[in-house]
């Protein structure tokens, strides 16, 4: 790959819960084409999928950006949703503010953010209540 870095941008449709996952499925395809190991591909695409689901549940959608660099893959999730009031609490497994109808779809278990952290090497959350949330995750390659 040399020193090139690749950049992709995906819009996450906030209205369509069932199509959430399109960015991560496409990302999986892209990473496979570039030739990353299955483990790296899995970690990136799962972290991104959880991010997409969060955007649909909480923020009426958002934008996912993917940067493929020489030594790492970076994912930036940006939304203009309600923001996260207490990030420490949100990071706890099992803590969720998702509405009940989301639970009937199998989400809202309070595992999204913890999973994103679990599958990445670094994760940084910037959030302002009433303005939105930006999450930057990296996976070292």
């Amino acid at each position: 790959m040399g020193n090139e870095s690749l950049y992709y941008r995906f819009d996450v449709d906030g209205e369509n819960f069932t199509s959430a996952g399109e960015a991560s499925v496409q990302t999986k395809r892209i990473l496979r084409r570039v030739g990353f190991s299955p483990d790296i591909i899995k970690r990136v695409s799962i972290a991104m999928y959880e991010g997409e689901i969060n955007m649909v549940i909480h923020a009426c959608g958002g934008v996912v950006e993917l940067f493929i660099e020489e030594d790492k893959i970076k994912i930036i999730l940006t939304d203009h949703g309600p923001g996260i009031e207490n990030i420490d609490l949100a990071m706890q497994e099992g803590y969720s503010t998702a509405p009940d109808n989301i639970r009937s779809l199998g989400f809202g278990a309070g595992m999204g953010l913890p999973n994103m952290k679990r599958y990445t090497d670094s994760m940084e959350i910037e959030s302002k209540v009433g303005e939105g949330t930006k999450i930057t995750m990296t996976v070292n390659v």
């Binding site: 819960f17 069932t18 959430a20 996952g21 991560s24 499925v25 299955p38 899995k42 799962i46 999928y49 959880e50 689901i53 779809l105 199998g106 989400f107 809202g108 278990a109 309070g110 595992m111 999204g112 913890p114 999973n115 679990r118």
Partner: peptide, 26 residues
Amino acid sequence: LLSWVMGRAKESQAFVTIMTNINVLA
């Protein structure tokens, strides 16, 4: 609980569930 499965299931396991929404496939 799909997020739970996302965090715990391992490659090539058979996924036993009662969920039938499209996210199961993702």
